[in-house]
């Protein structure tokens, strides 16, 4: 019952991800979903669903943005479209969308995904009682906390096992405002690859970009839990998310392949420290050189956090 869910930046990459054994693809449109590698058109979503379903695989669509009135009005027809093309689930972070699903009798399973604030079993169970079929865990949880959550929830829990962690979302154009103030003709789009370094921590490097949902800032280290997957499994965290926002094309597909191999080895009881090490070394080859990796809050001591 371990499922691997990976972002798809294109139909081509989606196909390749399914080929290497990914179970679910994660796509969406920027206007309704947060921090996607590519904003898919409706036609592209439809194609992706057809491809996945033809292989008995699934597609989850990101509808997890915080929506203002204009967006909450437009999202209804989007949800109707998603229901019609039979996407397998959506992620939702705004209770307004949950309200609309019920109000319009839309039959789409939803996974609760309010990013940084999904931090306890009680909270997840609150949403499960209101129809959520899963939940995406905050990245700021330690193993001890995750284990406790896994033991007290009934819906599948999704944990980021590979990729970037967003640590700040503002509706303000924070980078544009700075660039305008300093008279620099630079567009802070995702493509530009801007990052900020804290003055007192010169080794830090937080990626920053702006899009339709505002300004996004990411942790200095991308998450890699390849070395912790046995514990992830033991803690009943069964949906493993791979986020390819900053890992392009075939490199990301190869990394997904490594996680599929790891999953199979774990399920077939072939997991060993040596094997894990081999996979992890390969992962580092495919991972962008300029983005350091670590295990994030998974390996931190909860009592060290104030």
């Amino acid at each position: 019952m371990i499922k691997i869910i990976a972002t798809a930046a294109s139909a081509e990459q989606g196909k390749a991800l399914l080929e290497v054994g990914v179970d679910m693809l994660y796509v969406g449109e920027d206007a309704f979903g947060l921090r996607l590698p590519t904003s898919f058109s409706r036609a592209e979503i439809e194609t992706m669903v057809e491809i996945a379903h033809s292989q008995n695989k699934k597609v989850v669509v990101a509808v997890n943005a915080l929506m203002h009135n204009d967006r909450i009005e437009k999202v209804v027809s989007y949800l109707q479209f998603l229901e019609k093309c039979r996407v397998d689930a959506i992620t939702v972070g705004d209770p307004g969308v949950i309200h609309l699903l019920k109000k319009h009798n839309l039959n789409i399973p939803f996974i609760y995904d309010a990013q940084t604030i999904v931090t306890s079993a009680k909270q997840i169970n609150f949403w499960a009682k209101r129809g959520a079929t899963g939940a995406v865990l905050a990245r700021e949880l330690t193993y001890e906390e995750l284990e406790a959550i896994g033991a007290q929830t009934t819906v599948p829990l999704e944990i980021l096992v590979y990729g970037a962690t967003c640590i700040h979302q503002s509706l303000r154009p924070l980078a544009s405002n700075y660039l305008q103030y300093t008279n620099q003709d630079v567009s802070p789009s995702k493509k530009r690859g801007l990052y900020i370094t804290e003055k007192n921590d010169p080794d830090s490097r937080y990626s920053i970009y702006e899009d339709i949902n505002g300004t996004h800032i990411f942790a200095s280290y991308d998450v890699n839990l390849l070395t912790q997957l046995d514990k992830v499994m033991e803690a009943n965290l069964h949906h493993w998310k791979l986020d390819g926002l900053f890992t392009k094309g075939d490199d990301f597909v190869q990394i997904a392949r490594l996680f599929v191999e790891a999953k199979n080895a774990l399920l077939e009881k072939r997991w060993s420290a040596d094997y894990m090490q081999q996979l992890n070394e390969k992962l580092h080859e495919y991972h962008p050189k300029d983005r350091p990796l670590d295990e994030g809050f998974f390996v931190k001591d909860p009592t060290e956090i104030e």
């Binding site: 940084t116 604030i117 640590i167 700040h168």
Partner: peptide, 26 residues
């Protein structure tokens, strides 16, 4: 300056949980 609740700069930069009263105003 962020959407409230959607900022964990403080958690990542100084191990202080912004959403549990520890915000270090990073």
């Amino acid at each position: 300056i962020s959407y409230s609740g959607r900022c964990v700069l403080s958690n990542h930069m100084s191990m202080r949980d912004a959403n549990r009263g520890g915000c270090s105003q990073s």
